[in-house]
Design a protein around this nucleic acid. Sequence first.
RNA 1: CGGGGAGUGGCUCAGCCUGGUAGAGCACCUGGUUCGGGACCAGGGGGUCGGAGGUUCAAAUCCUCUCUCCCCGACCA
Length: 595
Amino acid sequence: MHRWSQLFIPTLREAPADAEVASHKFLVRAGYIRQLAAGIYSHLFLGQRTLLRITEVVREEMSRIGQEFLLPALHPREIWEASGRWSLMGDNMFRLKDRGGRDLCLGMTHEEIMTEIARKELRSYKQLPQIWYQIQTKFRDEPRPKSGLIRVRQFIMKDAYSFDIDAAGLDASYQKHYDVYCRIFDRCGLKYAVVEAHSGAMGGSQSQEFMVMTAAGEDVVASCPNCGYAANLEKATSKLASAHDLPGEGAPEEVHTPGMKTIEEVAKFLGVSPTQKIKTLAMMQTEDDPKNPGKKKSRAVIVLLRGDHSLNEAKLSTVLGGKEFRPMQADEIEQVFHSPAGYLGPVKVPATSSSQQGSETQKLLLESLPLLLADTALQGRKNLITGANKENYHLKNVTPGRDFHPTEWVDLRNASAGEGCPQCGSPLVVGKAMEIGHIFKLGYKYTKSMGASVLDKDGKEVTPIMGSYGIGVERILAAAIEQNNDQDGFWLPRSIAPFDVVVTPTNVKEASLLGAGEEIAQKLEAAGFAVLLDDRDERPGVKFKDADLVGIPYRINVGKKVTEGKVEVVTRSTRKSQDANIPAIENEFREILRS
RNA sequence: CGGGGAGUGGCUCAGCCUGGUAGAGCACCUGGUUCGGGACCAGGGGGUCGGAGGUUCAAAUCCUCUCUCCCCGACCA
């Protein structure tokens, strides 16, 4: 039993000025956390207690499928060079030098370290499959830490890695994680969605994110209330209602559009809909030039979208093979289009064509031409309007496939609310979400680059296939608070709350009340509950307010009714109060929990 | 990095425009009265006004530089 009077639970009457989201305000007010620097927090007594309960749930569930390790957080440069991520991770990686001048970094994730172990130790297919996990601190130098514990630079992650002999094995390991993640988040009392996700810097084929829908989140998810389709907007697709083409048969024709630069201006001026326009985005793809170390080589990328659509940068990044890209600068636009921005279009712009195949020299020539990527929403359209590559002029009657030839037709646009679900056609819903877990089928990216292999049944060397799986521990806490709060504070599910119940004698100067409180606390403790006895010499109002604030799901008021042998059990989430008899308090409390 | 805002006792903020003894509420300490929804009275402690430089007889206040934090846009658990 813990006595509040002896503990350090620094509750605040007012929210700190720099907190915006509910979980941040309440975590600070309830004395769970204190900030040390941007995106760096200290966990105080109550905060650490709930984190321990969360990791307990995670550990129990993970131990069903895997083995717990603990890897170092401090890594030598060489191991990150081996996978190619020393440079790929860029400024997001914390880097430092040891006294000998050797480069080190703080671990952002542990694919490399786990693969290193696998590479050195795994020899035979008989040792597979393996699932190794750890619960450990990760360091990421986020460009913009924010929202309390939601986006930080140091956080606890449960990360797991699977090694299998073949794709079918990976599928099984992946499914095991999927199931265990559902169990974990269910036990933590969260309402969540599993969505199709973009793989980003991790690489790999399939990945899914576990998302808690909340305005405090930073991801955007498209979902279908009808069939259950759900995807991160980075990946989401949709069915479009067919768009009307303008009538006409002729060839492209210039129209004077003085000073009209935006899609809206031009559409309004010409009396057409933005859906009848082509949006032309001029980008530059950049990558390190292997021939000139330290220098970048770049290539123009022209992206065509329907006028009312927006570019999905994650999709473009995937199409470009993960290479970086940026908008073109004015001089680059002039070079490629011979026109100022605002009047750009694909007609008569030399670009790599899909059909062109040929010798090495031809290939080199093609590589110097821009890539022309057209969104599939433009496929089959005709008589569209686009820039004429001439100041103050646009072109009408532009038909893809006749007047220009894209290098590739690809899905590059953002899906948006109200468009049709790609599976069933019902209108999609779009909302903000917080990522609490992510599972990846990595494939051979790390095992291959780092040279891990085992012998198969036939004595042949094969590369194991890998998966990786993460859970943000503090985010589970933040998500639980975002889902369960009101004006006065929050309540956590019992599974992760710092205490199951707070016992509150209304006046500790009255020996009978304090005595009854002690008795109740002891009985409940003996019955297996985590109990906090609020034995502070404070007025009842102060104690009630604090109890409402700090996230404990139940409170037992020990007050006047003690003379009748009764106390009140208050459920924080509903504020419902019911009387219980002191002599049978364990059973009656248990009964209330059940209902 | 680009754009916006803020740094004044532990917390929330006023004072700054128009330089002249550093303030309030809450919190804290002592004594007393109170005791079912953040009590009251009396007394008390606590502040390099983010930092550096400058202007001035005089700077929290004006000027310059700088650091930190928060919010909005490109990454991720």
